[in-house]
Amino acid sequence: MPDQASREWWEELFQVYEFAHYRQYADELTRREVDFLIDALGLRGVETVLDVACGGGRHSLALAARGWTVVGLDAAASVIAHAQAAATDQGLNVEFVTGDMRQLPYHERFDVVLLMNSSLGFFDDETNQAVLNGIARALVPGGKVLIQCLNPYQIERYLRDFRSGWYPVGSGFVLREARFDPRRATLVINYRYVDAGRGIDVTHPGDQIRLYGFPELTAMLRAAGLRPLSVFGDTTLPPVPFEEASIWQVVIAIRDRPVRKEAEDADRADR
């Protein structure tokens, strides 16, 4: 398969069929995560939300079901088609868009942007910064972004359960092999899918995810014009602090409102 077609196939496998295979677990995980999002972001039900790298749309669909206006964006057209079909089946009004997170077409449209499940880091440092810059542009003044990503200082703990092994998906099995390259602070993951009954044996093109420590991540947010507000150690309730043993870091940042001209004039007069 060509590289793009191969990646689309794998995205369907992971974002659609894997979640369907583990439906009960996936539904409970999504419920817990959305409960956390609502609490941590202080959502009131009136916000417009952009779910970047939305995959099969599980967060987008769950938020829409609770009344939020949601746009879900992902680069894989086939996955977006599945998400749109799910929205139609559930009678939900969600706008699903095929798009590149590196070139978000929005300007001051959203109250909240989500970047979940370690979806920051698929590119080089300059491009990852450009992703955050685009998110900042998409936010209205006073809007917030929530980024969930792995804590590189605890990657060994994360890989204890994730490093390698076979697991079932659909009628076949996936072999996952993961390692961390400390020289590049990059998580490298390779997959193979085997379905003997259907004569399938394919290899994933490979993922490389640059992991950022908290000081790096907050510096990148500030460079994008986003002010970090809080950080948590997981997407669970009650909220857990980000500390030494945290595998995840969940950062919330705000695009500050511009200072009003009258306030600026008053400030000058006081000097």
Score class of each variant (00 low, 15 high):
residue 156 E to K: 11
residue 165 G to P: 01
residue 161 D to R: 14
residue 160 R to Q: 15
residue 178 A to Q: 05
residue 172 G to E: 06
residue 172 G to K: 05
residue 162 F to T: 13
residue 140 V to Q: 12
residue 161 D to T: 15
residue 155 I to F: 07
residue 147 I to E: 01
residue 156 E to M: 04
residue 166 W to T: 07
residue 144 K to Y: 06
residue 144 K to R: 15
residue 164 S to C: 09
residue 160 R to F: 10
residue 175 L to T: 07
residue 178 A to I: 06
residue 154 Q to D: 02
residue 177 E to M: 07
residue 163 R to E: 12
residue 144 K to I: 11
residue 150 L to P: 01
residue 177 E to I: 09
residue 151 N to C: 03
residue 141 P to N: 08
residue 172 G to C: 09
residue 144 K to D: 10
residue 162 F to E: 11
residue 158 Y to N: 12
residue 153 Y to T: 14
residue 143 G to M: 12
residue 149 C to A: 14
residue 168 P to H: 06
residue 163 R to K: 10
residue 155 I to E: 05
residue 154 Q to N: 12
residue 176 R to C: 04
residue 147 I to D: 00
residue 175 L to D: 11
residue 170 G to H: 06
residue 154 Q to A: 06
residue 142 G to I: 14
residue 162 F to L: 09
residue 147 I to M: 03
residue 142 G to R: 13
residue 149 C to R: 07
residue 164 S to M: 08
residue 175 L to W: 15
residue 165 G to V: 06
residue 171 S to R: 12
residue 167 Y to E: 00
residue 149 C to I: 09
residue 170 G to K: 05
residue 152 P to D: 01
residue 172 G to H: 08
residue 174 V to I: 15
residue 176 R to A: 09
residue 162 F to Q: 12
residue 170 G to Y: 05
residue 168 P to D: 10
residue 164 S to V: 05
residue 170 G to V: 07
